[in-house]
Amino acid sequence: MSRLNPFAKLPGLNTASVLLVESEEHFQQSLAEALVEETSVTVNVRLAKSFPLPIENDESRPRIDLVVFIINLTSELSFQSAEASLKYLEPGYFLGKVCFMVTNARSSSVPAERLDAVRRLAASLHCPLLFAEEQTPQGVTNAAERLLTILKAAAGFVPFTTPLYLSNLTRCTLPPDIDQPSFD
């Protein structure tokens, strides 16, 4: 089983690489287009449906600084695929180089348990969990902006901070049952 290793390759000069993993390939493309708009650093975006990644691309693949799992909450499959892919990552990635992005969270057809399951997963791996509004262009831009914030830290472009440090600040926590916040 070949695993993706965060430190197996040398980083490119002034380059940050991000891998977007989404089983349904709905949101990947538009997000990637928004991500490469960034001008201050060269952003390399790689797309994948799931892990393991094909071995034949191993040579050409740059060092991946951040792995983003895009989970569509309306589909159980999307969550299962992300969960299954996780084991193909070296543990080193979980020190601030993995994040989850959830789409369709504000949809009435989503069972509450699925969101909880995603939260539990992200919290157990100490990874950030971002929500995205993929329908509107503004939502896509914003999602890209937030990913870039994390990516720049993960690729080491932000002085005085490390990926682990940032992920420690942003990692997902399990929210309590807030259906009825009672103050009694």
Binding site: I150, L166, L169, T170, T173, I178
Partner: peptide, 23 residues
Amino acid sequence: VIPSTQIGRLLFEPLTQLFFTSS
């Protein structure tokens, strides 16, 4: 005003996550 026992989980945790990942 939110009582200090609740303020963390109701407000601070989601806001921290948003704050540090946003522009």
